[in-house]
Design a protein around this nucleic acid. Structure first.
Lengths: 238, 238
DNA sequence: CGTCGACTTGAGGACCCTCAACTCCAGTGG
DNA sequence: CCACTGGAGTTGAGGGTCCTCAAGTCGACG
């Protein structure tokens, strides 16, 4: 806690204003979170923000007995709790072994307030989160199991550190995927099998997929804008 | 446009810093939007923000042929496009006759940057939006038709200007409700009928509901925290 | 080799969607 | 005034998709 304060102070006197959000986390020590461990609890006072340095984090809510919803997966560079609230909106857990950096909300807020560079980046980050949330609502509202799974794989493949040519690393297990896509584990499994039988992708072990054609996946994902220009729906208006 | 700039300037010299977000819209003229008309289009350059003054606005996305998703309803005081992005994430349309105020993103951004009072309010607003989005994802992931409808009615009833004792005004039509809840219009209709036969609520005309017991509705909405203390799910942790 | 957890596969059923007919109501015109 | 029309909403029958429950397979690890 004290150390953090000091580090933060040093940087400001030496380097001047921070120029990127990642930079202000640099001086916090990395913490290691074992697979499955919790980073913060839904409902708890939100005293800290966390930056994912390595690994994958899931944000989830538990409702009633056994019903779990994963609202997002976070990857290196992403922030847990960027939308500063009095309490956390979700429980954050490590999908696999993770490294994170921690920062107090207060310090973060002060840094962002002070720096003209950080503020737009912070707003952009929140906007990005909103955009993802909208995307997810569309998926959950109107897509069938196959479209959901294809959307998921396409989104994963956009992470450069997960996709190596045609091999895609999928760090989360089937239950995570199911709870993220609003399906059951069985439906996820069946849908993968069906896609495999159509030679669109094939599972390799439990955490890898060999993808035959990302283009084909994108077409199956139900996103109009993946093969049409967005402006075409609106005709010639204005 | 010019008028806006002038008004904005006047206020700053006379009253000093704005103390609330609503205040900075006060000097923009109100515009009237007829029911069903569009305020802004998904994908268009986001040059303006809008504050809803009167009426209800729906934010929606169209995907493919005939598939529409409503991601949010906005009520008086709410902002369209608060998550500043290069382009709008959604199309905004008037559910009923509306009055709105407009402000350029640039001006808004400057005002918020300048004022120490506005910034936390703005962050809080974005956080609020994120919280609603999370809530909606839970609804779409895990709730059945009855829970969705009850959640919807409970949320509407929290708007003081819509709820008068046991009568609730529902400005949106069945199709809007269906596209918001990820159901079909028939399922919405049937679910209302079933709730009516159980004397939980009864439709009065097309745009009003007589609600027997909000408490009972809350219990049917599938939100654990509507009848349990939130902390109970987590056991005795810390 | 046995065990355990993660995953897959199958059978049956629930819930919601689709399609279609019907009611209700407001607005229009004879 | 009433018939006509069209839009919004309701109701019914049937079917599809996904869920539930259950059994079986796979793979890691002792």
């Amino acid at each position: 806690m004290l150390m953090q304060k000091t580090a933060s102070f040093e940087r400001n006197t030496i380097v001047g204003e921070a120029v990127s959000l990642s930079e202000i986390f640099q001086y916090s020590p990395t913490e290691t979170i074992a697979s499955g461990k919790t980073i913060c609890w839904e409902g708890d006072a939100a005293n800290h923000l966390f930056q994912v340095v390595e690994g994958v984090v899931r944000l989830q809510r538990i409702i009633g007995e056994g019903r779990r919803v994963i609202t997002a997966f976070l990857f290196p560079g992403d922030l847990v709790g960027a939308a500063l609230q009095a309490t956390y909106l979700f429980t954050a857990e490590a999908v696999n072994d993770c490294k994170i950096r921690r920062m107090s909300c207060k310090t973060f807020h002060e840094e962002v307030s002070r720096s003209e560079n950080l503020r737009p980046e912070y707003i952009a980050l929140l906007s990005q989160e909103m955009a993802s949330a909208h995307e997810q609502m569309v998926l959950l509202s109107k897509k069938n199991a196959e479209e959901r799974l294809c959307s998921f794989v396409v989104r994963l493949s956009e992470r450069p550190h997960l996709a190596k040519e045609d091999m895609l690393s999928v760090p989360m297990n089937r239950q995570d995927i199911a709870d993220y896509l609003g399906l059951t584990i069985e439906t996820v499994s069946r849908t993968i099998s069906k896609l495999a039988s159509r030679k669109i992708l094939s599972p390799v072990g439990r955490h890898d997929l060999k993808v035959a054609s990302y283009e084909r996946l994108a077409r199956l994902s139900g996103n109009t804008d993946d093969f049409f220009d967005k402006t075409c729906d609106r005709g010639s208006l204005h």
